[in-house]
Design a protein around this nucleic acid. Sequence first.
DNA 1: TTGAAAGCGATACCAG
DNA 2: CTGGTATCGCTTTCAA
Lengths: 330, 330
Amino acid sequence: MAITIKDIANKAGISAASVSRILTNRGRFSEETAQRVRQLANDMGYFKNQSAADLSQKSSRVVGVLVPITHTNFADEIIKGMQSKAYELGYELLIAFVTTDTQQQIKTVKSLLSRQLLAVVMLAIDIEDTVFDVLKSTDVKLLSVSNQLDNDIPSISSDNYAMMHTIVDYLYEHGHRQMALIGSSDPDPIVAILRRRGFIDALTNHGISYNPDFIWGVEMTYQTGLDAIKKFGEPLPFTAVIGSADIISIGLLNGAIGAGISVPNNLSIVTIDGTELTQLTRPTLTAAQQNFAKMGELAITTLADDSLSPHSMVFTDTILVPGGTVSKII
Amino acid sequence: MAITIKDIANKAGISAASVSRILTNRGRFSEETAQRVRQLANDMGYFKNQSAADLSQKSSRVVGVLVPITHTNFADEIIKGMQSKAYELGYELLIAFVTTDTQQQIKTVKSLLSRQLLAVVMLAIDIEDTVFDVLKSTDVKLLSVSNQLDNDIPSISSDNYAMMHTIVDYLYEHGHRQMALIGSSDPDPIVAILRRRGFIDALTNHGISYNPDFIWGVEMTYQTGLDAIKKFGEPLPFTAVIGSADIISIGLLNGAIGAGISVPNNLSIVTIDGTELTQLTRPTLTAAQQNFAKMGELAITTLADDSLSPHSMVFTDTILVPGGTVSKII
DNA sequence: TTGAAAGCGATACCAG
DNA sequence: CTGGTATCGCTTTCAA
């Protein structure tokens, strides 16, 4: 049987109410008894029963985080960002990995909602409608990070549209005129749509009419990168390719190497994300780097100061980090 | 105000007790009223208040998972394994990332323990004593996965000692006589000790007296791999090297490439772990692959059937997966 | 099969 | 500044 505040109260010869006040630092109490109580709590090995506290308070400082189990590793960076801010501001994170199985998703979400959460943060997840309905049926705050949803949910992400301009401009300045975009063909996700639009518009700005065939690949996987090179064959009909995720870009790079295409001499690659993965290849990947840690921090701070309205979108910065996969065409 | 079982009871014209029994499937009740109640619960958008349930039951089916935030990505695979088994057996996972900051660790652990957990699983964590004391001060079950602790804690991991024999034997059969082990020099962790011992003993079995200089590198990082190559210079005094983690091995590989050392012609590499990272390099890494998913599943099953005693160690299989980084020396 | 009632541990209000 | 007490929502005897 665990120690309760009542046990402490008995030992200290005071009431449980006082102990509670002291341990939570709320209300008034004399520093003198406080000393004693804190000492006692420590000595007796007391742990607050958070369930009881939550039940009593009907609220909590717990933020649920839904993480896709197939997460491209940037999720870690977002979580790190959330973690540090949460720690700083006294919030707790309850991380739940969700699979792609809808039934399991629903169960996971329900069990999350069974604790009175302050909010649920969705990391790069395109939630299915059935699951989403469950989420909306309660009054928890919702927040989408690294993704934008077509619902009334606030989001924190990179400005994907602008990012594509940055990338295309960069490649254009390096002399590239024929570019492909790999891994953003999925018709649904807003992020994919924005990237396609940004890609096309940026090309148009430079007077380049884009080739629809050059936007290819749905899945954010290594295989997509490999397949892309296979599909377009050798010689490639473009001089530069943009991978929609680091893992795709590594696939592109290795696919090119396998096909005897020299990078960056015969093919330039720019990757989107810019996680540590970009440092593991030779040459290292030139990347449009998203600020995932910042996204995570912002998630917590906006939740804390309640500064999010249903449709608000917050953008974090992206920077272009030169690596060794882009060459100048003369 | 959220819906409670009382609300449902009122609407159904029965008592809260009955609703509880029905919704938890405990005790007796007529299937007839059960139908109605379940329907009602669904329609009214009821969510169990898990805090209240936990408080009342003084127990839970929640397993806390401590994950080092600097986790080499295999943690994901372990979690996936735990997740699927937990889902299957009706347990919940409460995942907490822990930083290297002791104060933060303690706070994290305490907040974990504030919920009445069934158990705490530590993933590849070498817990500091102060933190460990906190953990031991309660009566939660403890379990260490992918690591062995020198405490009275049951563990699930690969047989690191035997694994080193497998690797060394493999290299020996390929004609290698001079081998180095990178990233297991940390004096503390049992895993590092076991790997060193296995390495040395396996060499001895083949009549090779090992060179202490060839066991080098403490941190499980990419940089350690790069540094190792730099340290030993060119030409390398050994023909094969074992990286204690995939990320180290990638460092070794890239370091070699950078130094103009051809892999596998002039240097063979075997990596320990065998995550998907091994597929991202060219050539792909030959690996002693650990069965992380199995570790995760076993963690939950052993917890479920309570089949762990303080000192029990469970080993999962490891297999040697040939890649392109080991050559035959003739 | 069902209901009434007693907790579970912490909090908060209201007196004192 | 401190104590008594009701309360949160659910579970679980014990009777009926």
